[in-house]
Design a protein around this nucleic acid. Structure first.
Lengths: 232, 232
DNA sequence: ACCCCGACTTGATCCAGGTCAAGCGTCGGC
DNA sequence: GCCGACGCTTGACCTGGATCAAGTCGGGGT
């Protein structure tokens, strides 16, 4: 991505490899001073924000290759917490050092902007999901997303284990646990997937993809695309 | 914010002032090549993403001082559109030039990271809003947000005009127009605000703030904070 | 090997808010 | 100044999904 081997080495030098973390360990907690970004090497992590009332909002699940902590730069403190879902290898990148590096390597700076921008674009997608989509569409989108991200890492896009609980999935998607459970059952009945505990097998990616929003008899549509209007 | 007057001048040099834009004008459209960031000087802008089915998701309303287009860096193309809501003055900042500048001015680079990070943190807040909050909480949060942002710009935090329609507000908050309308009426009945067409007067900021989520009899709480767990 | 607890499923019921259906007031165009 | 239309309000009704309430199952600890 436009970095010389020498650049890569410099970047590599500032990355800290920590010993493997285990289920339940925190990368950081809400309120912690911001020092580093974290990259998942293997395993998975969830990030979540405690909401005032005592509940929490799951903000994301992070798979290998994904980066965590970008939202903390502005306030110089973490606004959310990150907890390891299974035994995981995590790299730590001290942000101060990274900033120095990006200031002297233009292409790295560009990558950094792209990374931050990508995170924004992703959040934007989630906003659409939570604002406009039905429970069915949300869960289908979640499964497709997992599938694609695993594939990107060279893992099976159709056969995988979920490291998070139904509860966490529901929280993430703005749904009750019961709804998630029922939908898994339904998808299975419809032959779209096999569910066994945390073991997921997707049998019909296309159909699942179709559920996400493209097709469908245009269910809930709260902005009744006033069709005939011409000069628009 | 750590810039020398000379730095400021350099930044100022690359900013383009465009002639005023009018209601309905586009800053950019979904799919356009990404060239510049835009800053609202006066007026307001809405950004929105067309969803596959023909509807649209309003992603945000941008008031003076706010920046637009950060989500386009990654793909080098705009994933959403931005439309001017009322006669507005907008500055354009060619991103290529800005990148050059941030590479040579460390504090500017830092500001840029903070800006991007802030956007992420803001989207995160919206996720919580859309994922967990009731219609009442959403609208209250929207009003408080408008109030605070106007105040930051030295405008009245309690007396202002909304440049967007009820429809757009509803779309933004994931609510039907009717719900927005009913809530405005209710808030007015409860003495929290005065509504006259687009003219808004907030009478009780504290009460409105209270509605947002902090207090309240803990309505919907789909992750029953398993209270007593110790080692957590 | 057993037990216990937490995770999950399934069914019954409820309700916030979406949808449908009239009006009505305002504003821009002529 | 009149007219048409769009934006907003209000009421009636309906439904997706939350909540409540039992079970069932599996896995880890002793």
């Amino acid at each position: 991505m436009g970095l010389t081997p020498e650049d890569v080495e410099r970047l590599d030098d500032i990355v800290k490899r920590t010993r493997p973390l285990h289920r339940g360990d925190f990368l950081f907690r809400n309120g912690d001073r911001f020092r580093s970004l974290y990259v998942v090497k293997t395993g998975s992590v969830k990030s979540f924000a405690p909401s005032p009332e005592g509940g929490e909002q799951v903000l994301g699940f992070h798979l290998p290759g994904e980066i965590i902590g970008l939202d903390a730069i502005e306030k110089d403190a973490h606004a959310c917490s990150a907890k390891v879902l299974e035994t995981s290898a995590i790299c730590e990148i001290p942000f101060g050092r990274l900033e120095e590096l990006t200031a002297s390597i233009a292409s790295l700076q560009h990558q950094m902007y792209r990374l931050l921008s990508k995170e924004i674009a992703h959040d934007t997608d989630m906003l659409l999901l939570l604002g406009k989509k039905s429970a069915e569409e949300r869960l289908a989108a979640f499964l497709i997303s997992m599938s694609k991200r695993l594939q990107k890492r060279g893992l099976s896009p159709t056969d995988f284990y979920l490291s998070m609980s139904r509860h966490e999935i529901g929280n993430y998607l703005g749904l009750a646990v019961e709804t998630v459970s029922r939908l898994f059952t339904r998808f299975q009945d419809e032959g779209l997937m096999l569910v066994d505990r945390k073991h997921i097998q997707l049998l019909n990616l296309e159909a699942l993809d179709g559920l996400v929003g493209g097709a469908g008899p245009c269910r809930q549509q709260q902005n009744r695309a006033r069709a005939p209007v011409a000069g628009d």
